[in-house]
Nucleic acid binder design. Structure first.
Length: 270
DNA sequence: AGTCGCGCCTGGCGGC
DNA sequence: TGCCGCCAGGCGCGAC
């Protein structure tokens, strides 16, 4: 499930192959993604030179002089760089052929991902109103505390809201709340400034550590070379319901918060 | 305005 | 062994 660390890992992996390179062809094999791939996308991107690669939340941005290609990996998406001529696999929906003889392939079995072309002159509602980057200084205890006042949703749903802060999905929300010793079901508006300080610190820590491990591979996620991310080995609670808490030994509990699998320790988290 | 539930989609897995 | 139903969840959307 690509969250910020998986998208960042992908960005760092593909960057050396694409930066300063020219796209010589674009093939859209399956336009039926989360949002339909626009019919003119290939025409707009072909011939463009990629002048920068960036990430905003879970969106990858391939910058050119006339606009940017926005890619979201959805639930099961991945990007791989292969040599031109390697056989296409099932669910390889879109390809960018690069002047160097490499090909960037967008692979997404469940098709929850999306690909957009965004001209320089236009904004896009999907990225224009996002919250701060969690690894930036704009994301701090005061910000999160103030943003939470009056909110009746659970703290877990609160930090998974991309309008509040980008990049945190179910896995890292579970992990950060465990590390911060906060129960996922706590009401966001009733948590103290001090505890939000701890939560901010743990969110930054878990995301940073996960990036260092190349992200978390549960099923679908792979790096640009097809290799998995290894942060699964360092998960403390996600996927570990029924196992003893690594901190106190009590059996970890699983429930549904916001209709998503939530794992926590009833002793360590309050 | 904030909150909640739905649905998109495929593949893996448990149960029978 | 095979089939069926459930589940995984990012995220926009409609309803209240």
């Amino acid at each position: 499930m690509p969250e910020l660390p998986e998208v960042e890992t992908t960005l760092r992996g593909i960057k050396p192959y694409l930066l300063g390179k020219t796209v010589t062809a674009v093939m859209v094999h399956e336009p039926r993604l989360r949002w339909p791939v626009e019919a003119n996308l290939a025409q707009m991107v072909t011939g463009q030179t990629i002048s920068g690669l960036n990430r905003r939340g879970k969106y990858l941005l391939l910058e050119t002089s006339s606009g940017r290609l926005m890619i979201h990996l959805g639930m099961s998406g991945s990007l791989r760089v292969v040599k031109n001529g390697i056989a296409r696999r099932k669910h390889d929906h879109l390809e960018l052929v690069i002047s160097t003889g490499k090909v960037l392939r967008f692979h997404d079995p469940r098709r929850f991902g999306s690909v957009f072309w965004l001209p320089n002159t236009e904004g896009h509602e999907l990225i224009d109103n996002l919250g701060p980057e969690p690894l930036s200084k704009d994301f701090n205890a005061d910000y999160l505390f103030e943003a939470s006042r009056g909110r009746r949703i659970t703290v877990k749903n609160f930090v998974m809201n991309s309008k509040i802060v980008v990049g945190i999905g179910n896995i890292y929300a579970n992990e950060a709340l465990f590390m911060a010793a906060i129960l996922p079901s706590r009401v966001a508006g009733t948590i103290s400034r001090r505890r939000y300080g701890t939560l901010v610190e743990k969110i930054k820590l878990v995301l940073t550590n996960a990036i260092e491990s190349g992200g978390t591979t549960l099923r679908d996620f792979v790096r640009e070379d097809g290799s998995p991310g290894y942060f699964k080995l360092e998960l403390l609670v996600y996927g570990l319901a029924g196992e003893p808490c690594k901190r106190c030994g009590r059996i970890l509990t699983e429930s549904r918060v916001g209709n998503r699998s939530t794992v926590f320790c009833t002793r360590c988290q309050r």
